[in-house]
Amino acid sequence: MRTIDDITGEILTLASTHFKVDRENLSPQEDFFKSLGIDSLQALELLTRLENHFNVELPDYEVQGVSDFQTLAERIQSRL
């Protein structure tokens, strides 16, 4: 079973790859809108990539207001 740290690590790697930001510059507690430089449409893209990667469904309202990688990982863990 994946731990929160595993999930957070996978999210950071995925985000770094797709939004072309150095993995070393991303940290779990960081605001991903700022660190990835993304808007709301790109946040939807991130949501879809996470759903596809972890094979889960994440209703928008569960991640609304979430802006750090760690909390995102917690939401995903609840559905794994």
Binding site: E51, E57, P59, D60, Y61
Partner: peptide
């Protein structure tokens, strides 16, 4: 009724 978005696989 939830207003949620669903992905293509779903």
């Amino acid at each position: 009724l939830t207003g949620r978005s669903i992905n293509a696989t779903k």
